[in-house]
Write a protein that binds this DNA or RNA. Structure first.
Lengths: 208, 208
DNA sequence: TTTAGGAGATGACAAATGTCATACCATTTG
DNA sequence: CAAATGGTATGACATTTGTCATCTCCTAAA
């Protein structure tokens, strides 16, 4: 039997969820909290296997509440329920170790999601997964040819982003230090940046 | 009724999986393929809801086969089964739009995972999810307290990594420019770095 | 062949940066 | 109360950095 706690600040939603889940023979809703704060309070005594929680709530939001609950030693698998696809929330949810993030709309799959989460698997709404690779692999957003960056300049950029000084870059590329300085200068102009530190930032934010 | 195709080049494994899944009342194993190539051939005629596929196979491996199958217009949800936790595979699986990636060991949860996947949710083994944040944003590998970095210094680090000059940081933090310079200097000493550019690199490589 | 243009280099210069010694002041601590 | 402490600030200094004008080669195009 899987014990569940539901957390949603909309009583209608939490009520509906309770009905849906209680209808399953192997799932039991042990508690319903109407706010993040209440959830934090209830979690230790209820000790549910799974917490189904709305991520957007007034007061303490879902991720904050979940973090608190997990910090307090709960072993519950947290399954976030959300109306929106918000990168920030997804990100945060993953970071604090949530076991699921699904869209309210397809709550028909809620029971099977709860079961999967309870058995240690992580569940994400299909739309959520589509976003993952974007977040994972945010390379190639920058096209060097767009800015007339030559291959040699690209090499310089990489070395700058490795923390090398002009002199070190010069040695590594068999050039004069002054030349490197000129190249850096020209790169900065092309990319509309001010100094090598900004160039390194640009590299990590746009190129890697 | 959920129709499933199993793909594994080890007949023992695919046989076991078939038994496990056929044992479920709402799941039916429609086909078993013993190689990636065979899976690609069978997929169109079988048209399963879910494909349970080993990711490491001789010849055409799991991701390649899945990619081919999906390119051919199959609407199957692909659920990868794997013995290992390989970053590269996880990455690739996500990229080609797999709906699941779970570890063979906990095949007890296979039926509920199949159901969740069939209903449009994505499923990942718990261990897999633990890796996601690492891949997503590899933060927290750095513990500021390890190096006596104060909160204020942390703020400076972030501003440096945003490409601000000392003067700009000073304005933003209501400090004197010289003070900021001293703080940067002390940060550099603590982290054993040479200049602000290296600090920005450090930030993006270890902290973000 | 002549020429235009690119890559590399120089030197000069101002600005920014990093280091250091020192000082001020409000706290905590003895 | 006095001393130690931590945060903030200065000034001086050496280096590094970014910009510019200019120069030399070398090559490819006219």
């Amino acid at each position: 039997m899987i014990s569940v706690m539901i957390v949603d600040d909309d009583p209608f939603v939490s009520g509906s969820l309770k009905i849906i889940l209680d209808n399953e023979p192997d799932i039991e809703v042990k508690a319903v909290a109407n706010s993040g704060e209440e959830a934090v309070k209830l979690a230790p005594e209820v000790a549910p296997d799974v917490i189904v929680m709305d991520i957007r709530m007034d007061g303490m939001n879902g991720t904050e509440a979940a973090q608190k609950i997990l910090e307090n030693g709960s072993k519950a698998a947290v399954l976030f329920l959300t109306t929106f696809l918000d990168d920030e929330y997804i990100n945060k949810a993953l970071k604090i170790g949530a076991m699921g993030y699904i869209i309210k709309q397809d709550c028909g799959s809620l029971p099977s999601s709860v079961r999967a989460v309870a058995s240690g698997q992580a569940v994400f709404g299909g739309k959520v997964v589509e976003k993952l690779p974007d977040l994972l692999n945010r390379k190639e957003r920058f096209d060097p040819s767009e800015f007339d960056i030559t291959p040699k300049e690209l090499e310089v950029i990489e070395l700058v982003a490795d923390g090398l000084s002009n002199k070190e870059i010069a040695e590594k590329m068999f050039l004069g230090e002054g030349t490197v300085r000129n190249m850096v200068s020209s790169i900065l102009t092309k990319l509309d940046l001010r100094d090598r530190t900004q160039l390194a930032c640009f590299y990590y934010q746009k190129m890697v």
